[in-house]
């Protein structure tokens, strides 16, 4: 029983990471039709910026409020990079979908290489507050706090995103734009401003995922974004592109499936089950669980 609880919490922790990466990816794709391969780069930027801030930024550190400040710095860095990428690189190619994908592919290759040049190819130990390494007893299982941190962070982001989509004017524009972008412009709205916004939001969430994955895995490396990104893609497709809630549901399904099968089956079998799940969902509902709609 306690194993099952631990597995569930760990699977949900993984799901939290997937969700943080996938939610932005999903909104960017749903609204702007950009399959963003550079999204993993935003994650890495967040992770390295947090790592750097913890060691160098005055007031920041690896514990207490200092760590919060470091994470905040990482999130801001990811947000800024994402917004810049949209403004400088994606916007000039407006509605040229393939070229936009190609640019993000180039960016992901060059970005990882640049990180390697700056910080070395080997993983760096990540500063993590000591409390995240403690365990609490939950339903008879000893559960490490870092997993709960991941889950809480993802829930907060989910709540904020849904509230933003539901109650703000830009949220309304994004939900409408995911459904029919052309019609939004035909109502007199410059939808491209919303593009920058979803990139920034996605960058922030991915950067947060980067910082938290550093805490969870204990290290950060230039390629850590890429491996999370592929599963985030799968989550996006299963959940339905453009749907935040769909991403959340799909992330939980993927995280739990992966964790349980990897534990009870052979290592790696869970990853393969996830891909099989993707194939099944696509054959059953080609538009994903939520179809193409931004759920709020």
């Amino acid at each position: 029983m306690s194993t099952i609880v631990l597995m569930t919490v760990t699977g949900l922790g993984l799901a939290a990471l997937y969700f943080l990466v996938a939610s932005g990816l999903s909104l960017v794709f749903g609204l702007a039709d950009v399959l963003n391969f550079a999204h993993g780069l935003f994650l890495s930027v967040g992770a390295y910026a947090t790592w750097w801030a913890a060691g160098n930024l005055p007031g920041a550190g690896s514990d207490g409020w200092g760590f919060v400040l470091a994470v905040l710095f990482g999130v801001v860095a990811g947000t800024v990079v994402a917004a810049l990428v949209e403004l400088v690189m994606i916007r000039p190619l407006y509605s040229r979908t393939i070229e936009q994908v190609l640019v993000t592919v180039g960016l992901s290759l060059a970005g990882v290489a640049a990180l390697q040049a700056g910080f070395g190819a080997d993983p760096r130990p990540f500063p993590r507050p000591s409390w995240t390494q403690q365990v609490v007893t939950l339903a008879g299982a000893r559960v490490p706090l870092d997993r709960l941190l991941l889950i809480v962070a993802a829930l907060v982001v989910l709540g904020l995103l849904l509230a933003f989509l539901r109650w703000t004017r830009y949220g309304l524009i994004i939900r409408a734009g995911v459904e029919n972008r052309e019609m939004v412009t035909a109502l007199g709205i410059d939808v491209r401003k919303a593009f920058t916004l979803v990139f920034a939001i996605g960058g922030a969430a991915a950067a947060l995922a980067g910082a938290l994955s550093g805490v969870y895995f204990g290290s950060v490396s230039p390629t850590s974004g890429a491996s999370l990104l592929i599963f985030a893609f799968i989550v996006v497709v299963i959940g339905g592109m453009g749907s935040v809630l769909g991403s959340a549901v799909a992330a939980v399904a993927v995280g739990l499936l992966q964790q349980f099968v990897n534990y009870y089956g052979t290592s790696g079998a869970g990853d393969i089950c996830v891909v099989a799940l993707l194939a099944v969902v696509l054959l059953w509902r080609p538009a994903g669980l939520a179809g193409k709609a931004a759920t709020a």
Binding site: V236, D271, I272, P286
Partner: peptide, 28 residues
Amino acid sequence: AVALRVHGIAFSMVTLAFGQVGAILVAR
């Protein structure tokens, strides 16, 4: 035959996922 059931970018993502299975198998 499976991946081509979907179109456009979704096809790209499915092929990416299938490719990832290969990478995982090799690594494990």
